[in-house]
């Protein structure tokens, strides 16, 4: 169970940006860019939450805060009752993170890549081997385990990355646009992976621009627009608030409603 409440994150503006960009963007104030202003959502066991929002809405920033890579300016993130903002080390153990831009160590083999992260997470000896083997079998990675990552196809890299992200049995899995730029086959790896996690009762939070994936996988959605979560709830409630049975239309309607309030 992950509960996110009132997250805020601002970035200092680069000097050259300070004067050039007009303050037409309401998120740019007092020399800061308020990337995330108020984001709250929750995702329980066996639940898959889709994080939606236009480009620049603040999805990546939000997910990076979940992953403890960025420290929120305000707000809380609780995983199984533990506030990981106060205790990032707990958060790192509890979260499995994967983004579309995540890379591998090219000169290490697929196996070595996964084992390295297992070791960094404190796994050793038999426990390490059995956990890795379990993942390699589940993701059917046998064919390319001992090939260097730089020689792997995108699909193989993807699988290696997935194994790497969950090797420490995280309580929550966070994915940032995991399917962007992938072909149908490799996309399928991800979709199956998310389904597996759901079957294991692991909460999954993932951001995406593909609403068909949302329809396919998600129990609930959170829509972020200009740094603020505008909607958070079940798919059904989303369609209701968006006044449309089509996810696309509902998305547009909610974003437009949001702009009316501003």
């Amino acid at each position: 169970m992950i509960v996110v409440n009132g997250l805020k994150k601002r970035f200092k503006l680069a000097k050259e940006l300070l004067n050039t960009t007009s303050s037409s963007d309401s998120r740019q104030r007092e020399g800061f860019f308020h990337s995330v202003e108020n984001v709250s959502f929750s995702c329980g066991r066996g639940e898959v939450l889709g994080l939606l929002g236009p480009n620049g809405a603040g999805k990546t920033t939000t997910l990076r805060m979940l992953s403890t890579a960025l420290k929120p300016d305000a707000g809380s993130i609780e995983i199984s009752g533990q506030n990981i903002v106060k205790n990032p080390l707990k958060g790192r153990k509890a979260i499995g993170f994967l983004s579309g831009t995540t890379g591998l160590y090219g000169r290490l083999t697929a196996r070595e890549n996964v084992e390295y992260f297992a070791k960094l997470h404190g796994l050793k000896g038999r426990a390490l081997k059995s956990r890795c083997d379990e993942l390699f079998t589940r993701l059917s990675m046998g064919d390319f385990l001992d090939k260097r990552a730089e020689h792997l196809s995108t699909g193989m890299k993807q699988k290696t990355n997935i194994a790497r992200a969950v090797v420490h049995r995280p309580d929550v899995v966070v994915l940032d646009e995991p399917t962007t730029g992938l072909d149908i086959m490799t996309k399928q790896n991800i979709i199956e992976f998310i389904r597996d996690l759901k079957a294991d009762n692991t909460p999954v939070v993932f951001s995406t621009h593909h609403l068909d994936e949302v329809a396919l996988l998600c129990d609930s959605v959170c829509l972020i627009d200009r740094g603020t979560s505008r909607f958070c709830g079940s798919i059904e409630a989303f369609k209701e608030v968006g006044q449309s049975g089509e996810l696309n239309d509902a998305f547009m309607n909610i974003v437009n409603q949001g702009s009316l309030h501003v």
Binding site: T68, A69, R92, G103, F117, R164
Partner: peptide, 13 residues
């Protein structure tokens, strides 16, 4: 550049 730093920073090390 290779996008491995972010994951490295998410380990308990």
């Amino acid at each position: 550049e290779r996008g491995t730093l972010e994951t490295l920073l998410l380990t308990p090390v």
